[in-house]
Design a protein around this nucleic acid. Structure first.
Lengths: 141, 141
DNA sequence: AGAATAAAAAACCTTTTTATCTTTTATTCA
DNA sequence: TGAATAAAAGATAAAAAGGTTTTTTATTCT
């Protein structure tokens, strides 16, 4: 469903949203260690996200990655799009180019329900909202 | 979700189930052409399925791939397992090793509910049953 | 028996994904 | 100002997925 990079990206952003206090920043290395993700690889991913304005960063001593107020209003869907591309959650499960409810592939109904359900969450839930739930329900990253 | 190989495998098996009459067989080359799948690559996949007894084959002139009575009782889940491995539909969406309903990842509830729906179909629907529906509803492959 | 056919098997190549390493640039702070 | 820090950028490496080619083996049909 999601590429490895995309999974890393989601976990990293949620870490920034839930574990960093106001004004605090974290470097790629420390974040990699905290989440058990290869740090140089994670750095690449964070730079992608930063370039597209989904997360923020500052260079130099005391610098690192963090989320601005704006960044917290980003939906998970945009993060997925940024890393896996806009088609990540839209293609047919069986790879049919013509698959639709009018012209369904053999697994269309089940697959569509599954994916749309998840996609709805990703599209409608912001990082901020999800972060609140993670804290409230004490969910691990 | 499914690898390219797995998508090809499912389509190929469903072709055998719906387009071949009693006693008929089809070669990898013709099947590749019919389904728009690179034939040599498809051949390898078919050989995997054949080795594990999910489809049948005979060599030599007039030979090719086909489904025995037994083969038609195979579930799609077994085909997916054969090609993508047993964990294909079981891992956490975010790649957490510890993800479960007791210890959920941030997307667990949504992802789990919808994925189980699809998995249930794959696990309980045989190739024969799906083939009937494909014929009844005139679904394209 | 021998030619033709087609799967099985094995080796190989290409592309994409995942991961690492090195250099450069911007920032802070002493 | 300059040393230290950390992101940005780019180049490289390793592994996996996707795809092709070649050789071998089994079967059929003349």
């Amino acid at each position: 469903m999601f590429s490895q990079s995309c999974k890393y990206a989601i976990r990293a952003v949620l870490y920034l949203a839930t574990r960093l206090s106001e004004g605090e920043r974290i470097g790629a290395k420390a974040l990699g260690e905290a989440l058990n993700i290869p740090a140089p690889f994670l750095a690449k991913i964070l730079q992608d996200l930063s370039r597209k304005g989904l997360i923020s960063s500052v260079k130099g001593p005391g610098g690192g990655f963090f989320l601005s107020e704006d960044n917290q209003n980003v939906t998970l869907e945009r993060i997925v799009e940024c890393i896996d591309g806009p088609e990540a959650m839209h293609g047919c499960v069986l790879g049919f180019t013509t698959c639709s409810s009018a012209n369904p592939c053999p697994l269309h109904v089940q697959a569509f329900a599954y994916r749309e359900g998840l996609r709805y969450q990703l599209a409608h839930q912001t990082v901020r909202e999800l972060a609140l739930r993670i804290n409230r329900e004490n969910i691990k990253l």
